[in-house]
Design a binder for these strands. Structure first.
Length: 664
RNA sequence: GCUGGCGUAGCUCAACGGUAGAGCAACGGUUUUGUAAACCGUAGGUUGUGGGUUCGAUUCCCGUCGCCAGCUCCA
């Protein structure tokens, strides 16, 4: 034991014959220790249960990446003297380092130079060395280098914690560690992009330049990662949306998709399918207005809590002498001056007639609930609404179909008694599972998003109760969830359903939210069996969430090759020669008679070209008709690159009809 | 919104101070074709938009609109 006291982690492992060529660190419980770290306090560091950590262990990846970030910062300061360093953590996809460079911007050419310098440093096989310093020593060293950001970081380190520097070659950085033993372990390195980022993620603080990169212990692992990125690029729904003629955009309607005929067929197919499930699960669909008096949003709380995301609609009498007034801004404290100025210029603003474009369906569903005197016998009342919503999203967050300003959701609100909540949550779980399975989304993770730290409505007791009910509903189904503290909606906690797509990326789709607030704000009541009034509970729920956003996920999940039941064209009929066209047309007509969606290619092209043309649309099937097929009254069927052989027209109708049914 | 980058034919891209080009798509013709691109021809543009610099601007500068990346990961 006495011997252990002055030994390094590496020496301990070596003595036990556990130090391998690819050992980058040691695990002491969950702590990761540098190999060269001295075990001066063996008891607290847990020297007795050290296990080696191999470079290809996933737990070693953050070390590899963070060490690479150091090498990058070293290279940047060599090439661009005077550039100050800030932070450079390992992240899920690699690492980044934020720099304050005063003399210019990093260009793509700079990235190539930095990467080349990094390779030189890595090739020198420089060991990483940890040294601890006193706060005063650290401050002196950083001040001497003019590293003002590091000084700020130093001041944020709690008193009593060790202050350490990590050095490789001549370059050192204030750093907690741990690191790989030497630069030799950094073999798969690539710088990917440069972007702006605020110091400490705060928009009021200086904008720094962030260089992103990724790193793996081997070139092979890096190559695999780059291939994955390429695959993601190939599946990008914005690219496929254009190539497959699914949707488009126009600058006169920013972030508002136009669904082209092929895309609209998929969109409507999804909605039709969801309607059949709604019928089975006891939902009633309603259709509600787009624009409401401001009073509705004041009542619901959206005017106070959600106005920044709302579009405001005004009648033409609110248009001033200087044109359309940006009314939305005029109702903020900062806008008061503009408002006064506009009024002085003769703008006639009818503040009492301002209307809000709906951003959510819940308030209008509350109005519907209150259209009748409700009995407990009416509950649960499940109101579904595919109504179009508009939300003003900040320009920087817009992205293809996944972040838009107009969309519709597979939205529904369930009004029920407190006693009915368990059954409603359970039924929703079943519906959601059914839909996800139908769409081939098998991997689902649950998260419970709790009360936001500010800006939320309702009492602590209501929130605690709602959160507990959601948590219990998960346990009742034998599932588990992860907590997302503070991520709830302003009116209630959310259960979020995250799915993993075909290439392993997670997406949040469905939600289930308990809301005790809206029923209170709208004074909703039902008459119980005791003949007394009671307040209903309101559940907000969506299976796929925004259909636009879901389509972005689904297009990438399927790479644009939709299943028969959703495909815009289920089979493309191509003929060998013109003389086969009448047969193909007749077959197409027969398929349409069975509610199928065929497409006949009557272009003047050779068969090979037509097959290629059809394949680019990624239909489930391509059917070839030539002399042999006409003779035998059928088609030669092809799925992707696979030849399925001859099918009679009867067999084709039967096969397609079976596959066109909604999955169960 | 902020920082940086990018807007050229329907699509993918050239030209980067000196008359704006290609491939695919479109259109016309020839060909009647057997499983991922037949051949010939025609047409298509105030280079996102407004202004400025210049003898001359797609190219340089400024504004504006749109698109793309990032702005959450903490020595």
């Amino acid at each position: 034991m006495v011997n252990v006291m002055k030994q390094s982690v590496g020496e301990v492992l070596k003595a036990r014959n556990q130090l391998h060529p690819n050992t980058v660190a040691a695990l002491a419980g969950t702590r990761v220790l540098d190999l060269h770290r001295t075990l001066d306090t063996a008891d607290t560091l847990g020297a007795t249960d050290l296990t080696p950590l191999a470079s290809d262990d996933p737990r070693a990846l953050p070390l590899v990446r963070h060490s690479t970030a150091h090498v990058m910062a070293d290279a940047v300061q060599r090439l661009f003297p005077g550039t100050r360093v800030t932070i450079g953590p390992a992240i899920d996809s690699g690492f980044y380092y934020d720099f304050d460079r005063r003399d210019g911007r990093f260009t793509d050419e700079d990235l190539a130079r930095i990467e080349a310098t990094m390779r030189e440093i890595i090739a020198q096989d420089l060991p990483f060395q940890r040294t601890e310093r006193t706060r005063a020593e650290a401050r002196e060293a950083l001040a001497a280098q003019g590293e003002t950001y590091k000084l700020e970081i130093l001041d944020a380190i709690p008193v009593g914690e060790a202050i350490s520097f990590y050095q490789h070659g001549p370059w050192a950085d204030l750093c907690e560690g741990p690191h790989v033993p030497s630069t030799r372990f950094l073999q798969g390195v690539k710088l990917t992009s440069v972007a702006g980022a605020y110091w400490r993620g705060d928009e009021r603080r200086p904008m720094l330049q962030r260089i992103y990169g990724t790193a793996f212990p081997t070139q092979k692992a890096l190559d695999a990662h780059l291939k994955q990125l390429e695959e993601a690029r190939a599946r990008d729904h914005r690219k496929l949306g254009k190539e497959l003629k699914l949707f488009t955009f126009h600058e006169w309607a920013p972030a508002s998709p136009f669904f082209l005929p092929r895309g609209a067929r998929v969109y409507n197919g999804l909605v039709s399918y969801l309607r059949t499930r709604y019928a089975r699960y006891g939902y009633d669909e309603v259709i509600t207005p787009q624009i409401f008096d401001q009073a509705l949003w004041e009542r619901s709380g959206h005017w106070e809590h959600y106005r920044a995301n709302m579009f405001v609609a005004v009648g033409t009498d609110a248009v001033g002498a200087k044109g359309v007034v940006p009314v939305n801004q005029l109702f903020t404290a900062e806008g008061a001056e503009d408002r006064a100025a506009l009024e002085a210029h003769g703008a006639h603003l009818h503040f009492d007639q301002v209307s809000g474009c709906k951003a959510m369906n819940c308030p209008s569903h509350c109005l519907l609930f209150a259209t009748e005197k409700r009995s407990y016998r009416d509950l649960p009342l499940r109101l579904a609404d595919f109504g179009r919503l508009h939300r003003y999203e900040r320009s920087g967050v817009l992205h293809g179909l996944s972040r838009v300003r107009t969309f519709s959701q597979d939205d529904a609100h369930i009004f029920c008694t407190p006693e009915q909540m368990d059954a409603e949550l359970s039924s929703f779980f079943d519906l959601r599972d059914e839909v996800y399975r139908a769409l081939g989304l098998d991997k689902v993770e649950l998260r419970l998003a709790t009360r936001p730290t500010e800006g939320s409505l309702g009492t602590d007791e209501d929130w605690a109760r709602a959160e507990a009910i959601l948590a219990e509903s998960v346990r009742a189904k034998g599932k588990t969830f992860v907590l997302s503290p503070g991520e709830g909606a302003f009116y209630g906690p959310k259960l979020e359903f995250h799915v993993t797509d075909a290439i392993g990326r997670p997406w949040q789709l469905g939600t289930m939210q308990v809301d005790f607030n809206l029923p209170n704000r709208f004074g909703l009541e039902y008459v119980g069996s005791d003949n007394a009034p009671h307040r209903p509970v309101m559940l907000h729920r969506a299976v796929l969430g925004s259909l636009e956003r879901f389509l972005s996920v689904y297009i990438e999940h399927t790479a644009g090759a939709f299943p028969v039941w959703l495909a815009p064209e289920q089979v493309v009929l191509v003929t060998v020669a013109d003389r086969h066209l009448p047969f193909a047309q007749e077959l197409a007509q027969r398929l349409r008679g069975h509610d199928l969606r065929p497409l006949v290619d009557d272009s003047n092209e050779k068969l090979g070209a037509k097959v290629r043309q059809a394949s680019l649309l990624k239909p489930p099937y391509i059917a070839v008709v030539g002399d042999k097929e006409v003779e035998a009254v059928g088609v030669n069927l092809r799925k992707g690159r696979q030849d399925l052989g001859f099918f009679t027209t009867d067999a084709l109708v039967e096969k397609l009809t079976a596959e066109a049914r909604y999955p169960t």
